[in-house]
Write a protein that binds this DNA or RNA. Structure first.
Length: 652
RNA sequence: GCUAGCGUAGCUCAAUCGGCAGAGCAGUUGAUUUGUAAUCAACAGGUUGUGGGUUCAAGUCCCUCCGCUAGCUCCA
């Protein structure tokens, strides 16, 4: 006798052996048709997998309304795609085919080089499979038997997987659909027909088991939905992301450039982009001073020896510009981070406990030789400027200091209208050996960090093992922009190791007149100006809030007769500290407005004979349109207020 | 770095089977003097990313290098 408890609390009892599909059929014919899978005591199984013969279970039937259903659909669609590829090409070896973020992929090893030209053919074959609507049939067998089975199918990657990763399993499952069989944990849709809409997205290389030393496979990406309409919406979102691409907007709006002759990944801030950056720098600077930081400036290169001491050089040798070798044998490294220089300032004289916490801040330019394939506009570059600071404090000050750093980051994000973020605690993965320092120190640091964070009401705080820096645990802010894409930006890192005896061997004299070791905190609310501004361009779709806008107001004259008054208005705006431009071309006013709108200039002051007579301006807002006529002084005040308050406004 | 794709005017793109490199926007000049998202006209703009090869003939086909894009690996 099986007792099944449904989510509404109702209980059903069965003396015969049933499947979730049977339970659904009991409840009603509509549900019987709609059921795709089930959650049994929290575990996902297929609709046609048998339930236990007796005992008590809770059962939740899954239909296309459930969030998990989409993953199920996409996983099945990955099988459908693999089946189509195997029908079309010879000698296909299957690797893995999971779901990811907004779709799925399948990795293949095969002779034929897949390209986008093959997509139509593959999609047509997939459509045929979906139409045939054959069931996904689960087949279980012993692992040993499975090895032979895969060998017979000539699926050697699967054989390897069974013999290595799955060596500990006794039984494994396959899913069969017509002539197609694939080693797979499942579950799957009852049959292929539920796949309403799908599309192949791209083809790329991927390493077998994610290991760059192993062979490279061909990865085919696709996405799928229950309905065509949902697929169309998804494609529209991708278009929207493309429209916001900071590389295109950066070029269009003349914010930054990269010149291949100068070097890949080296950013030029053009005058308009430089305004955005400078405003952000001033904003941070103010905030740093308010919070007791002391700005410093340090060299952008340093003796390699320094980075050997810090441990950075050996750890990151491959991703640094190689050292500059001098005739006398000295070797200098383009600095890949700022901390060693700040440590040197700390060590430039004996320190007393009275000086702590010592907070040294620098917008420090650093260089890292990222692999060419990693470079991406402003968000992944080889030279960038961190909004960096290092806090040297006594152990008992760590909690307060760390909290202060997190609060500053929260304040900065809030000011910019970035309200959707989560905090990830990156801890050490004890199984890896890429860390410096002993286990006890790490434990102490991780506990201190976690305690601070738990006491702070940080959104979606979660721990990830293996995400720590090599010298200590950290808290990263992962920010979602207005269309939901996630960016890892600000970071606060706790460091008991660099000050330690094996590294810089730092100390201060305590109240007890004995030497003590300080603790270091590394922190950067933006991360880097390049990456942060790249993200901001996409977040705002190039339309910056007034306080950041390169050109805040454009004065435009209805006819050239009003030019004199227009230029007076422009001068008055400049006097008031506003960034104003003027348009005195022999164009119609409509054309000037259009150009200013396309340049995303927040305000337009339209000026003709009527305004000139009364010292007025007709104000047009980029978002709201015509705001009517007001006195020049009232308009100036209105803009100054918006700047002072750093108001973030958007069209949507 | 690896796999695949792409590279034509400042920008967006065209050029059939290998057969005279072209358009719109931007720019310059001239006309027009305009009231809330494009006034009209003329002019100018190119070693088709680089170097080589095949061919009577290469933007187009082949090879090399450079760069870009997507993904993989990496990210102090």
């Amino acid at each position: 006798m099986l007792k099944v408890t449904l989510p509404d609390g109702k209980v059903r009892e069965y003396s015969r052996r049933v499947r979730p599909a049977d339970v659904a059929a009991d409840i009603g014919p509509r549900l019987a048709k709609a059921v795709l899978a089930a959650e049994v005591d929290g575990q996902l199984i297929g609709a046609n997998q048998p339930l236990p013969a007796d005992g008590e279970i809770t059962l939740r039937l899954i239909t296309d309304k459930d969030p998990q259903a989409l993953d199920l659909l996409r996983h099945s669609c990955a099988h459908i795609m693999a089946r189509a590829v195997m029908r079309l090409f010879d000698g296909v070896q299957l690797a893995f085919g999971p779901t990811v973020g907004d779709g799925f992929y399948y990795d293949f090893q095969m002779e034929h080089k897949l390209s986008e030209e093959d997509f139509a053919k593959i999609e047509a074959e997939m459509a045929r499979i979906v139409k045939e609507d054959e069931p996904f049939e689960r087949v279980e067998m012993d692992r040993n038997e499975a090895v032979e089975f895969c060998r017979d199918l000539n699926q050697l990657l699967k054989v390897e997987h069974l013999e290595e990763t799955l060596a500990g399993e006794r039984r494994v499952s396959f899913y069969r659909q017509g002539e197609f069989v694939d080693l797979c944990r499942g579950p799957h849709l009852p049959s292929a027909g539920a796949v309403g809409a799908f599309k192949l997205m791209s083809v790329a290389g991927a390493y077998w088991k994610g290991d760059a030393s192993r062979q490279q496979l061909q990865r085919l990406y696709g996405t799928a939905f229950f309905q065509k309409k949902q697929l169309d919406e998804h494609l529209k979102r991708l278009e929207e992301a493309k429209r916001r691409d900071h590389r295109l907007l950066g070029k269009q709006l003349e914010l930054f450039m990269i010149d291949p002759e100068v070097g890949s990944g080296l950013v030029f801030w053009l005058p308009k982009g430089a305004v955005v950056r400078r405003e952000l720098e001033l904003f941070l600077y103010d905030e740093l001073l308010r919070r007791g930081y002391q700005p410093v400036y340090t060299p952008v290169i340093g003796n390699v020896h320094l980075y050997e001491t810090s441990g950075h050089y050996p750890y990151y040798k491959d991703t640094q510009f190689p050292p500059i070798e001098m005739d006398d044998g000295d070797r200098y490294l383009l600095r890949p981070m700022n901390c060693p220089h700040h440590v040197k300032i700390y060590q430039s004289k004996p320190r007393s406990y009275r000086e702590l916490p010592l907070r040294l801040a620098e917008f420090g330019q650093v260089h890292r030789f990222e692999q060419s394939g990693e470079l991406n506009g402003m968000v992944r570059v080889r030279g960038f400027t961190q909004d960096d600071a290092h806090i040297f404090c006594a152990e008992e000050q760590v909690a307060d200091e760390f909290r202060g750093c997190l609060e500053m980051t929260q304040f900065v994000l809030k000011t910019l209208g970035l309200n959707d973020y989560r905090v990830r605690l990156g801890f050490r993965d004890p199984a890896q050996d890429k860390y410096v320092g002993d286990a006890a120190t790490w434990q102490r640091a991780e506990e201190a960090l976690e305690n601070v964070c738990r006491g702070m009401d940080l959104p979606e705080l979660h721990i990830e093992r293996g995400e720590a820096a090599f010298y200590g645990p950290k808290a990263d802010f992962i920010v979602a922009d207005c269309i939901g894409r996630q960016w890892q930006l600000g970071t606060v890192q706790l460091d008991y190791n660099l000050p330690g005896p094996d590294r810089f061997d730092m100390e201060y004299i305590g109240a007890d007149n004995a030497p003590h070791r300080p603790v270091m905190i590394h922190r950067a609310p933006f991360g880097s100006f390049e990456r942060f501004v790249g993200m901001l361009i996409e977040h705002y779709a190039g339309a910056f809030p007034l306080w950041l806008a390169p050109e805040q107001v454009r004065v435009m004259v209805v006819s050239q007769k009003a030019e004199d008054y227009g230029r007076r208005v422009e001068r008055r705006l400049a006097e008031a500290g506003l960034r104003a431009g003027g348009d005195y071309r022999a164009e119609k006013i409509g054309a000037k407005i259009r150009d200013a709108q396309l340049e995303l200039i927040p305000y337009m002051f339209v000026i003709g004979g009527r305004e000139a007579d009364e010292e007025n301006v007709a104000v047009r807002d980029r978002i709201e349109g015509d705001l009517g006529t007001m006195s020049l002084e009232a308009a100036v005040e209105r803009l100054k207020k918006e700047i002072r308050e750093k108001t973030v406004r958007s069209k949507d």
